[in-house]
Write a protein that binds this DNA or RNA. Structure first.
Lengths: 341, 341
DNA sequence: TTTAAATTTGTAAACGTTTACATTTCTATG
DNA sequence: CATAGAAATGTAAACGTTTACAAATTTAAA
């Protein structure tokens, strides 16, 4: 493999000149540049990223941490991250947590040991203690995408919608439709996750605001996934009575729930309305198409990456919390109660 | 940031000893080890991966190239890759092509410039010319997951199912159900992709084997995605007559097609049977649940990564093509023709 | 106790860049 | 043409590891 040295020899210049030609061509004169360029072509030289990064002390990579690849909702977020990353020559390293929680110190270690320059967390930290012991109090560049309140406590920048207010809106929409008997599929996440709690709070507050009591039998905790939604729906079906509408912690749960509901012979939305949260690709083509809250995933990705870049550059980011507006998208999975009678 | 030197000083040993303690602890005596360990803890030392990888000339990363994150089908594949990667201390760099084709030379460059040690291609190479000009004939470690025939031509190892035979099976299943009027949603991929062609071949051969003519109006090319499936279905609906069954190049197309079919008032499977290909998560809970061909995605990921590791290690891999068995999973989107009358 | 062998540790070079600083070469002005 | 200043290029150090090889120490046998 030819190195900068080979190029320098062939072009009869010093390695410094070659390096300069590569990194700021305007700093070498035309005739020299020509010789160097020729030498590069002849030798087939490509700069050794390993060496460069080592020298510069930067990996030029950021790590995106998510529960699992292949969850449609994360697609657009990562695409947003990538859009920004590409524009500044950064690569994306994907880390899957497999829904396990990750220790804060693990991330610190990742950054200290130069596996990555910074981290975008689309997953949650476990028992969120910042008291890092083994890492000498280093605070790695981390941006929380999606997560909210934990960010406040932890002083990590955060880019997300207002989950509580969004859940509030969703619930209110259901109430506005005339529903009083509303179930809630509470997403079960790792301890420390505020997102699911915020959505639950939004739900409860919206109910309370209208003096509608919450039937706790209809508040079911299950993994925030298709399978979780299915489990929860099956459990719901065993109750003596059933709600006229169900609000789900996310679209995956909603889709899973709808499947089980329909399987049990119920019609959606005539017998039960189902409301999702996130608006991922498959929610548009579900049967019926899912009414849900839309998170502008691409923007979340973009903004998160920008924030992270600032952090990496050592800039002091101003407002620690960046709230993105959400939107209720009305499709066909919700209707007035009693329509099925 | 403390380096190996700081540790060495504190432990009163040479940096070589520290390095040895880290990489092969059995090579340093217990009392020394203890001192070093203590020094490591006190200084909070973490090995600088950048420096190590530079010195070793390895990135310890492989790149997984796929069209887009968030496509459910890729989830399990990447998980398979990761399983193996984790076990040997490799990281996964994800590169999205955004459905664009990537030049062969781009990969070569990626490897030469040490951005990655090897590549698992779950996407396709564009105008597949191996005649790399700028890269001096270097052949990077690449494994093709999913793709088949191109592998033969290109001499890259490949791990995949037999797409043609699987499509043959699917078509035969439809025929066995009594269908004669079968449409085919031909996935549109980048030039050079053999996978879609293989599936089309399988379809045509199965039809020919039973002397059933293929109605070319019902063979529709569209992007191999949900949106593509929707487009194709809409086009199909404009035909004078319509098939009693539709075989789709993949599940995404099938789901998209089902959506449009149902939207047009057709019942699946009573009026039209729909057959998918891949068996991804959402196919199980679609309405109706999708009958499809299952690719053992996790295995494909695992085997691909193993192969790649061999390649990286410079081993000469034996058989270049590794065929994984597929399986037809029968659900409710296909039935006998005429059921709807 | 001596000595050879085995084990542990140290020394120093190398990996391929980038860059501060020194030196050379060019440009333009008097 | 001489010269100052600017621009281009060269020199050499540094980044933090790993590792061949040399040196020192321990162990075991005589």
């Amino acid at each position: 493999m030819s190195s900068i040295k080979d190029v320098a020899e062939m072009a009869q210049v010093s390695i410094a000149t070659v390096s300069r030609y590569i990194n700021s061509p305007e700093r070498v004169r035309a005739p020299t540049a020509k010789r160097v360029q020729e030498a590069i072509e002849i030798t087939g030289y490509k700069t050794n990223t390993l060496a460069r990064n080592f020298r510069m002390g930067k990996t030029q990579q950021v790590m995106v941490v998510l529960p699992s690849i292949g969850i449609p909702f994360y697609g657009p977020i990562v695409e947003g991250v990538r859009k920004v990353a590409d524009s500044v020559g950064y690569h994306i390293l994907v880390m899957e947590t497999a829904f396990n929680s990750v220790e804060f110190d693990d991330f610190t270690r990742l950054v200290i040991s130069k596996q990555t320059d910074g981290i975008i967390l689309l997953s949650t930290l476990s028992p969120f203690k910042e008291t890092n012991t083994s890492t000498n109090g280093v605070r790695p560049p981390i941006v929380l995408g999606l997560e909210s309140i934990a960010a406040e406590l932890s002083h990590f920048p955060c880019v997300c919608i207002n989950n509580e207010s969004a859940a509030h809106d969703a619930t209110q929409y259901l109430i506005g439709l005339g529903h009083r008997n509303i179930g809630f599929l509470h997403g079960l996440t790792n301890p420390g996750t505020e997102l699911t709690k915020a959505r639950a709070d939004g739900f409860r507050k919206a109910m309370a605001a209208q003096d509608i009591p919450v039937n706790e039998d209809w508040v079911i905790k299950a993994p925030i996934s298709v399978e979780g939604g299915r489990q929860a729906a099956r459990q719901l079906l065993t109750c003596d009575s059933r709600p006229s509408a169900i609000f789900c912690a996310n679209d995956e749960m909603a889709l899973g729930a709808m499947f089980e509901l329909k399987k049990a012979g119920l019609r959606v939305p005539e017998d039960v309305s189902v409301m999702g949260f996130d608006n991922m690709l498959y929610s548009e083509i579900s049967d019926p198409p899912l009414t849900t809250i839309e998170q502008p995933a691409d923007k979340i990705g973009e903004y998160s990456m920008r924030r992270l870049l600032q952090l990496i550059a050592g800039e002091t980011v101003g407002n620690n919390m960046e709230i993105i507006p959400h939107r209720l998208v009305e499709r066909q999975s919700c209707t007035k109660p009693g329509t099925g009678k």
